[in-house]
Write a protein that binds this DNA or RNA. Structure first.
Lengths: 216, 216
DNA sequence: GTTCTCAGATGACGTTGTCACCTAAACGAC
DNA sequence: GTCGTTTAGGTGACAACGTCATCTGAGAAC
């Protein structure tokens, strides 16, 4: 016999997996609640028993990905065979790797929420709900998971620059790695125009911070 | 009397303006072809006479924005009262300003296209068309407009680092500014966790490049 | 055994992007 | 001027989507 809680957990897992798979294949537009339900072996309305809507489901997928990334940096931080700058390089390249392997998922990691739905006329209720509505639960979870990753990352940065500069240079390094990844994914790092493999850019960034950070 | 070409150009302009306005108000989801048509004084199907679809319309809006940004950097580059590092700082802050003033438009500037629509099963034809289909004309225009901005930007960078390093450090600076902007917009630059106003981060970045770039 | 609870199924509704078809006015050739 | 052509724009229709109200049936609580 299968308890109800067990079966619900299995379904929830299957929904998340199906959503992640469809997201990888065709981006957010390909994540149809109908198709997600079908791949999870349930019907179109079933996801609403586990998530408040499509946005919430996609946000949950992003949350799990942030947790995995945080775990990876945690493991990398504990590796005794790596030096401080190697750990930092590895942590930054983790973002690049996720971006290359799963570009649509990467986009979800940095999705914006709730920007200026101020004066939307009288219609467009659907859009307003989408922007203002579920901005409480799942988004907060995602930012919390991202915060855990940032804590791990800052611990790595602290090994390279002084305690006093960790938060500032951590933000700079993180923004830099994200920007490099995002520029590459969006096709704005044209090799004919810019001398710019992501790895070389990150190496330059790490080197500059290692040279400047501790003494600044 | 109004010639047909004039009236069509007016309509096209009105469509672009309406789309940009709706984009600012509620993001891409709020840009409805029906509402765009209504605000432009035409009907729901009229936009298809000027753009191949919704994606093409939004891409055209982004293209115009890249052109404006390129013009701004061009004007800033010609300003005789600014030093090299001030010009660079101003160019980078241009991106930050666009991101803050018009976050949804900023997202369109770096939108991805055509990622892995490989094995999408038998259904989902709509998604496949959306990913593979109009990836020829309007996207190329957008990247061309962004390239013009990059040329202007690289000319600014060349004033700070040597000719030999311009393309590499230009890519690094551009990626850095974009990453900083995008992290701020997506809520990942928590002031409690990271010591990170966008302005300070960009100042640090410019200072590091100015110290390291010319000699590397 | 009876009642409650809740995961899931189903029908329905409104909205959307997109297309096929139609209309009429500007245009070019003569 | 007239006549066919071109084309911006309007309209009807269709499928797909997110979402909700409602129903059903099986585990859980007593």
């Amino acid at each position: 016999m299968v308890t109800r809680a067990e079966s619900a957990a299995v379904t929830r897992r299957a929904l998340l997996d199906a959503a992640a798979e469809l997201l990888d294949l065709g981006g957010p537009a390909a994540v149809t609640l109908r198709e997600v339900g079908a791949r999870a072996g349930v019907s179109r309305g079933a996801p609403y028993r586990h998530f408040s809507g499509k946005d919430s489901l996609l946000t949950a997928v992003a949350t799990e990905s942030w947790q995995r990334i945080g775990d990876q940096v945690h493991a990398l931080r504990a590796d005794p065979e790596l030096g401080a700058s190697e750990k930092l390089r590895g942590a930054l390249l983790t973002l690049v790797r996720v971006g290359r392997d799963r570009p649509h998922l990467y986009q979800m990691l940095f999705r914006r929420h709730g920007h200026r739905p101020e004066e939307l006329g009288e219609g467009l209720d659907r859009v307003r709900r989408q922007l203002c509505g579920p901005a409480d639960d799942p988004v907060a979870d995602r930012l919390r998971a991202a915060g855990r990753f940032q804590d791990e990352f800052l611990a790595v940065v602290a090994g390279l620059v002084g305690e006093r500069n960790t938060r500032h240079y951590g933000a700079l390094l993180l923004s830099g790695a994200h920007g490099i990844t995002d520029m590459e994914l969006s096709g704005h790092l044209d090799p004919d125009e810019l001398d710019a493999s992501a790895e070389e850019l990150i190496d330059t960034l790490v080197r500059m911070v290692a040279d400047t950070g501790p003494t600044a």
